[in-house]
Every structure is written in C-alpha cells, then in structure tokens.
C-alpha cells in the first residue's frame, strides 16, 4: 500500500497553463476577430464558450465511464480516484454548458429554458452525476463506495450518447451539430482553440482532483489502519 503524497506531474501543470493561455487567445479571437453568424449576429459569439464546454463535458463523462469500468474490473483506488475526478469535472462543465446555453437561448429562441430534448437530457446528466457524488458522501466504506459509484456512473453514462444524438433522433429546438464545412473558417479556428483550451484545463482539473482523492484515502489509511485490510489495490 502506497501512502505517499500524490500530485500532478510538471507536464500536467504545464498543460493547465497552456490551457489557460489558449482559452484567453481563443476567447479574444471569438470576441473580436471571428465574424458574426449570418442570422444570429453578434450573439453567436457565445458558441466559443458554450460548444467547447459541451464537447469536453461529454468527453469527460466518457472518461468517467471508462474509469468506472476499470474500477469495477480491478478494484484499483487509482481508477476510483480518476472516476470521481471525472464526474466532478464533468459536472462543472455540464453546469457551464447549461448556463451558457440559457444565455444563448434567451436572445435566439426568446426563452431562457425549454423542456427541449437536448436541454432536458443535459439537465438529467447534471442531476444524475450530482447524485453519484452525493451518494459517495454517504458511504463510509471505501470499497463499497467505489463499487456503488462505479455502477451508478456506468448507468448514468447511458444519457451521454442521448445528449449528443437526440437532436438528430427527435424534433428539437436545438440545432443539429455543425461541421467545419458548414462554418466560416473565422468561426472554426477560435472554436478549436477554445476546445483544446478547455480540454487541457479539464485534464489538469482531473489530475488535481484525482490526487486530492488519493491523498484523502492515504490519510484515512493512516488514521484507521484497519481499513488497509479492506481497501482495494493502488
């Protein structure tokens, strides 16, 4: 059992700084350099924070599902720590995509909220994964906590492909996905920069949060050594 202090590598810290710089660059480009969309006008500039948050939210929830399967397969604490980190980071991005989406909806659709299939499935993922974190807080035994939350994360992941494909499968106020072919190059570039920026930041967030979880578990082992016999492998 390794009880040493855990922390992100220098490379991960560097990725976080790069993410911050890219986010500044992409946002300034999105606010000043990118052309306004032909129907939505200036308001379309919200996409440079809304869409990258949404892409990365779905990606990070996919990581959460992968780590959950790894955790169930191996009982590894590392997998559990990365799973809880992915869920928390995913929730932050999920909240951001919903709030920026509402700020986009008001001037373009004329309403703050609609029980549209895209907005509803996005809200369900926020509530479900929030529930997984709440459930973790109620379970004392680390092994049981890891198993139950991994099972819940895999179940909750069912909603993620629905969020992505629902606009194609059902009638929705939300537009279907654009492609670089349907967008002006002036819109594609800042969008890509911000997408990588938020991805790099999310990787740093994930690494930090996973380290916190492992340090907490290690501190628990020192405080309650009998748990060492019950805990999973590192």
């Amino acid at each position: 059992m390794n009880n040493s202090i855990s922390g992100p590598s220098k490379f991960t810290h560097g990725l976080g700084v790069l993410g911050l710089l890219l986010l500044l660059t992409g946002s300034v480009m999105g606010l000043t350099w990118a052309p306004p969309e032909q129907h939505m006008g200036e308001v379309s500039r919200i996409v440079f924070v809304h869409v990258p948050s949404a892409w990365n939210c779905l990606l990070i929830f996919t990581f959460a599902c992968g780590f959950a399967v790894w955790s169930l397969w191996s009982g590894s604490r590392k997998a559990d720590s990365y799973m809880v980190a992915s869920i928390e980071v995913g929730i932050v991005l999920n909240g951001l995509l919903l709030v920026t989406g509402m700020l986009f909806a008001r001037p373009t659709w004329g309403i703050w909220w609609d029980w549209d299939v895209r907005m509803t499935t996005s809200l369900i993922s926020l509530i479900f994964f929030g529930g997984v974190l709440a459930m973790r807080a109620l379970i004392d035994d680390p092994k049981q906590r890891a198993t139950w939350s991994a099972v819940a994360a895999v179940i909750g992941y069912v909603d993620v492909p629905l969020i992505y494909f629902c606009v194609r499968w059902w009638r929705s106020l939300h537009q279907v996905q654009s492609t670089p072919d349907t967008m002006s190059p002036g819109i594609v570039l800042p969008m890509r920069i911000n997408a990588f920026a938020i991805l790099f930041l999310a990787i740093w967030f994930l690494s930090m949060r996973a380290s916190i979880e492992r340090n907490r578990l290690a501190a628990q082992d020192v405080d309650q050594p009998d748990r060492l016999l019950e805990g999973g492998t590192l």
Binding site: L31, G41, E42, V43, P107
Partner: peptide, 10 residues
Amino acid sequence: GVIVGGWEYI
C-alpha cells in the same frame, strides 16, 4: 432577419 445586439448575454 438578423438578431441585433445581445452583447449583455455574450
């Protein structure tokens, strides 16, 4: 046919 303004939302 173009939305005008909206900087407060941005």
